Simulated assay, not measured.
Amino acid sequence: MYPIQLCLAGRAVLVAGGGAVAHRKVRGLLAARAAVTVVAPELSLPLAQLAAEKSIAWLEQLATEAVFAALPRPLLVFCATDDRTANAAFGKAAREAGALVNDATSPELCDFFLPAALRDGDLLVTVSTGGASPALSRALKRRLAAHLGAGWGDWLERLSRLRREARGRIEGSRGREDFWRMALSEHVLDLVEEGRLDEAEAELNHALDRFGTES
């Protein structure tokens, strides 16, 4: 497996199926601002509402290879019907059309897997079992969330701002390395974990003044 984060904004993604599994896929794809088309003869109420709001496009038919002649080539295809045979056939056609496939019923037919995701602002922590046990991925995500606590997304936002400032004020790679070694020290991370973000930021500002002056 090759770990990767995809920027899906505006990219064509196809979801086959109109039930609860398809809806879960669609929710995540819309959060990533993908251009989602759902292929199914019927939609669950949540998906029907999304279609009525024009948040997704709906192709009202069975998921067959004919779909790929009627639509622009998607980047990703999710086979999320409750029919394993139909999913396999549609996935094969999708692959021949040049798409990457995720088959909800057959991990061995997947080109990629969806990890359990822990999000806090721009911070994204994922856990994957390569499709072997999605339940374990979710359980480990819960444990990580409990261990990490809140505040890391806020800290990442502050750190991003300090990073831009450090680039402008600290000359040379050695000075920047020393600054980041201090910025990511156990002491600073402990302050963040305890929710003392202002104190952690003050520590970095002091370090920025020191390394900026020394460089």
Rank of each mutant, 00 (worst) to 15 (best):
A34M: 00
D122L: 12
A97M: 07
F90M: 05
T85D: 15
A69C: 08
F113R: 13
E186L: 04
K54F: 11
G212N: 09
A40V: 03
R174L: 13
G168H: 08
P115E: 02
P72N: 06
K92H: 13
A207M: 09
E157Y: 05
A48E: 08
L8K: 12
P74L: 04
W58I: 11
E203D: 14
E194D: 07
D122Q: 15
L156E: 13
W155G: 05
A166F: 04
D82W: 01
R142S: 14
A70E: 14
E199V: 14
F211E: 09
A66L: 12
R181Y: 09
K141T: 08
G172S: 04
F113C: 12
N87I: 04
V77G: 09
P115Q: 09
E157P: 02
P46V: 03
R119L: 08
R27V: 08
Y2T: 13
A97F: 05
V39E: 00
S106Y: 00
S137M: 00
L184Q: 07
A16D: 07
S173G: 06
A139I: 10
T81Q: 09
D178K: 15
T64S: 06
L71Y: 10
L50I: 02
A34I: 06
V21S: 10
Y2P: 09
V192S: 06
I170G: 00
A146F: 03
P72I: 03
P72V: 01
T126H: 09
L29N: 05
L75T: 10
V15M: 02
A51F: 04
V77D: 06
A70M: 08
S44Q: 03
R138P: 06
S215C: 08
L159F: 00
L140A: 14
G212D: 09
F211I: 11
S55G: 12
G149T: 04
R167L: 15
G212A: 06
A117R: 11
D154G: 10
G151M: 04
A94E: 06
V39I: 00
T126R: 10
G19W: 03
L184M: 03
T37H: 02
W58N: 09
K25A: 06
L47G: 11
V101P: 01
L208F: 10
L29C: 05
A207G: 13
